[in-house]
Design a protein around this nucleic acid. Sequence first.
DNA 1: GTCACATTAATTGTCGACACATTGGATTTA
DNA 2: TAAATCCAATGTGTCGACAATTAATGTGAC
Lengths: 233, 233
Amino acid sequence: MYIDNPTKQAIVTTADKVFEKMQHAIVEGEIPAGSKISEPELAKHYQISRSTLREALNRLEKCHLIERKANIGSRVVDCTIEGLLELYITREALEGMACRHAAFNMTDEEIASMQQMLINHSQAKALQEGVAYYQEEGDLDFHYKIILGSHNQQLINLICGQLYHLVRMYRFQFGMQSARASRAYDEHLHILQAISDRDGELAEMLMRRHIAASRKNIEQKIAEQKLNTSAKN
Amino acid sequence: MYIDNPTKQAIVTTADKVFEKMQHAIVEGEIPAGSKISEPELAKHYQISRSTLREALNRLEKCHLIERKANIGSRVVDCTIEGLLELYITREALEGMACRHAAFNMTDEEIASMQQMLINHSQAKALQEGVAYYQEEGDLDFHYKIILGSHNQQLINLICGQLYHLVRMYRFQFGMQSARASRAYDEHLHILQAISDRDGELAEMLMRRHIAASRKNIEQKIAEQKLNTSAKN
DNA sequence: GTCACATTAATTGTCGACACATTGGATTTA
DNA sequence: TAAATCCAATGTGTCGACAATTAATGTGAC
């Protein structure tokens, strides 16, 4: 069950459709990260002309899923640890600010809707130990609505329209759903509480800590992995 | 004298050249804000095919200078007050974070180079009362180098590659160089001091206040303008 | 005179072909 | 054998034309 992106423009043109297909293919690793993109090959695969494919490629570049170099070609971005950490830092800045403004700008209805959502998450979490569902869909959903709640079009476009897909890609490629699930849930609760108290300053601080904690959790896991592999060799 | 953008890819293809020309034309208002873009007309004007023009348009869209709708066309973004304030808020978040990391990641040489730059600014400022030069080029230059100093490619791309041109556009269109010049200079000094002290937390706070002060200054000017115009009517 | 509908004109999306740049391998030379 | 040069093959950039959609104009009915 995907969270539908309200920022995305309606899919009417064929380039739109191919863009969507390729987006999923890249995010889910079907088109491998770091791989070179052959325009003639892909155009044939999707049964479209190169012009249309290039239009789709331009949009993929817009959300940082591929990189283009003049006269050389396009490559799918590769998921490095440095890139992941940089992405978290960027999210910390942007989502923190979004959260601060959400505290000022969200309507009472929006807040109530999020409270209901967290209750649903809590039940789903209790049902299936929650790790998978919560970390994948629920977490993104929560963050997503906070960002929309900022009512700041610039922030919304940047995060939801551009960075969002990259975040999903990293989640898929690194396949991380950690033991932080239940702690993350509590943090969500506190963030929403700060918002419903209209305390923007606290809301921003909590959101930043929430994202930073997630980043540090990953850094730690990476460090452990390194320790293990070097111990084996 | 323009600040050359290290993030921009080398200009080799004709689409690159047209992109650059149009970028300047839009930023400086030669192509008016909010105006519709006619592909056949512009293609003829630049003596290129529509395909090449569309390639240029795609890049303009990437840095938020134009907006496209399927089957309808492209429009230059229009500069609204809301848009300006949203942009400042986004900058506050991103540049604040960049500044924090610059405090950790800038080399001693980079810091020394910035200190020298501020000395130069100070002299230019003393020479010509500084308002114009400082607010236009110098201020951007300072912020620019801080961002680069974060050594965070994600942040650099977002701010310098995308938002930067929009910031310049707003400056041109609203033509704002306020009496904040000398105060802003002092703030720059303090920020750089925090960085050279490797105090990331303070550096971020100062940068955020610096940008927020600039935003509030504009909000106040707008409020005064409204008061004046309504008094006249 | 105004609204609704149909027809025409103009604009955008898509296509296939050509021009140019880059890459890889074969040939020549030191 | 190694390095440099040339040539062919592949891939990207650009072009002009056609198809599909939207906007504009004109016509008729009320």
